[in-house]
Design a protein around this nucleic acid. Structure first.
Length: 286
DNA sequence: AATTTGGGCAACCGCTCTGTA
DNA sequence: TTACAGAGCGGTTGCCCAAAT
């Protein structure tokens, strides 16, 4: 007994959008806005499409400020840095890249940047680590897709997705080897919280994939995040990123703890409650 | 030249979150 | 307090096209 579908999939058009449909949607949204109701929008706009499809098309393709392709080195570093810190929270990562969408960033990561990062990382692995790393970046059994995401390639915190706790528990720690910078430890979490089942104990430094400093430097570009970076309007997340980077070099645990505490909603945030996130960073997600 | 293979990306699916009655 | 509807998100699929054989 699932909830009713948002639309009758048999009667709405699916698949690629035609230029005429794009024009209809674009002109309607530009003239009337979304009205806060995507479900009703296609009917009003004269489109035979699901509201969700309209929303996706607008957000990912038709918005006037969208950029496609042409990622800069700086954007690469931002993506890598945030992915290593918060995992596959694409909407958050995309929000720090003006003109980029979560879908675009996600595709870019899955098809290009992940390989690029791994190519840099691989030669840096200690002798016994590659097996763990290799296993950690294999697509999960549930994902045979060539572009399927993996939640474990870079970030320990990615293990603690706010979504899908069941799936999280199904992912055995063996396939989700967390990453640590030079043996740095993740903050331990209280074990009493229900979401934190014994099936997935707090990550321990042992068994994880070590990232050495040179790899972080290489990947992120040491010292290249300017304070008050224009991308972030100065201070705020930009300076946090810079702090993040330096902490990643010196003490990854505090960085990960801060971001983890910030981005994990509800119980997961409480789980890390003893770690105070930077002021003003967590308004919308907890 | 024809076929196969793999990468890139748009779109869909299904779930959680959030607001509201 | 609860149930429902809609929005938002991350994961996955499938098509298209270029490179390789």
């Amino acid at each position: 007994m699932g909830r009713a579908p948002c639309c009758d999939k048999a009667s709405v058009k699916r698949g690629p959008w035609s230029p005429e449909e794009d024009d209809l949607l674009r002109s309607y949204v530009q003239n009337h806005g979304t009205g806060g109701n995507w479900i009703a929008l296609p009917h009003k706009a004269g489109l035979n499409r699901c509201g969700k499809s309209c929303r996706l098309r607008w957000l990912n393709y038709l918005r006037p400020d969208i950029k496609h392709g042409g990622y800069t080195e700086q954007e690469d570093r931002i993506i890598c840095s945030l992915y290593s810190s918060i995992g596959s929270r694409w909407s958050i990562i995309a929000s720090k890249l003006p003109g980029r969408t979560d879908n675009d960033v996600k595709n870019y990561w899955n098809t290009k940047l992940k390989k690029k990062a791994l190519a840099i990382q691989q030669p840096q692995q200690p002798a016994q680590a590659p097996q763990q790393c290799a296993s950690s970046v294999q697509p999960s059994p549930a994902s045979a897709s060539s572009s399927g995401g993996d939640a474990c390639s870079f970030g320990g915190p990615a293990m603690y997705s706010s979504h899908q706790p069941a799936a999280m528990h199904q992912q055995a720690p063996a396939t989700l080897a967390p990453l640590y910078v030079d043996g740095g430890a993740m903050p331990s979490a209280p074990s009493s919280l229900p979401e934190f089942s014994p099936a997935l104990p707090p990550p321990q430094p042992t068994g994880g994939v070590a990232i050495n400093k040179s790899w972080i430097n290489k990947l992120l570009g040491a010292g290249e995040f300017p304070i008050g970076d224009h991308l972030f309007g100065g201070g705020g997340f930009g300076s946090l990123l810079l702090q993040d980077h330096h902490r990643a070099i010196t003490s990854s645990s505090s960085l990960q703890a801060e971001l983890s505490a910030c981005y994990f909603p509800n119980a997961q945030a409480e789980m890390w409650a003893d770690v105070k996130p930077p002021a003003g960073l967590c308004h919308s997600l907890t």
